[in-house]
Simulated assay, not measured.
Amino acid sequence: LEAKAKERGVTFLLPTDVVVADKFAADANTQTVSVENIPDGWMGLDIGPDSVKTFQDALADCKTVIWNGPMGVFEMEKFAAGTEGIAHSLAGITKTGTTTIIGGGDSVAAVEQLNLGSEMSHISTGGGASLELLEGKQLPGVAALDEA
């Protein structure tokens, strides 16, 4: 994907830092590290603050944003900051005219948990289906309606 983006002159952002945990649990020990320095036996469960800022800066002048998938395990407070930061940024840029489309059950749940659903342009629980529709693929449910 990085090579394809480069060929097409598209900016492709990946996290540079992550919040890691020694177990998948709300009471896990955590630390923020660069993506190159995740300790053995630890797992990345959220994007780190530098990544949040990078993504927020990139989103600031977008005209349309399609968000599918939270930034981390937002259901656990220790791993929610990335998702919360991006959600609040999207709500803010929606107010300035950006079209924000939230797709997928987890993304919708995160936005609703933060009481930001009404501040987005559109919310769809059909995450994978939404992406396939944007790719131009024929959706079986839509095809069936066309045949009726």
Rank of each mutant, 00 (worst) to 15 (best):
E36W: 12
A148F: 14
T94C: 05
A58V: 04
G127S: 08
Q31Y: 09
V10L: 13
S121E: 02
P140T: 03
G44P: 11
A91N: 06
T54F: 05
A26G: 13
W42Q: 09
A28T: 08
G104D: 01
D22R: 10
A21Y: 10
L90M: 07
Q113M: 14
G141V: 01
S89E: 15
E132G: 00
A81G: 04
N29S: 13
F24Y: 15
K63S: 15
D40H: 13
T32K: 07
D17A: 10
T64L: 11
V65E: 07
L45G: 09
G128F: 00
L133V: 00
V33R: 07
L134E: 01
L45A: 04
V73D: 12
Q31G: 09
M71A: 08
L45T: 08
P39K: 03
V111H: 00
A28H: 09
D57A: 11
P39C: 04
V35G: 04
A80Q: 11
L131P: 00
V73G: 07
L116R: 05
V20C: 13
L145K: 14
G126E: 04
G136N: 00
T30S: 06
L14V: 15
L131T: 01
E135T: 01
N37V: 09
I101S: 03
E75H: 01
R8I: 08
D146H: 10
D17C: 10
G82E: 02
K137A: 00
S89P: 05
N68T: 01
E147G: 12
T100D: 02
P140V: 03
I38C: 04
L139A: 01
K6A: 14
E36D: 15
K95M: 07
D57N: 12
D146I: 13
H88P: 10
T99K: 15
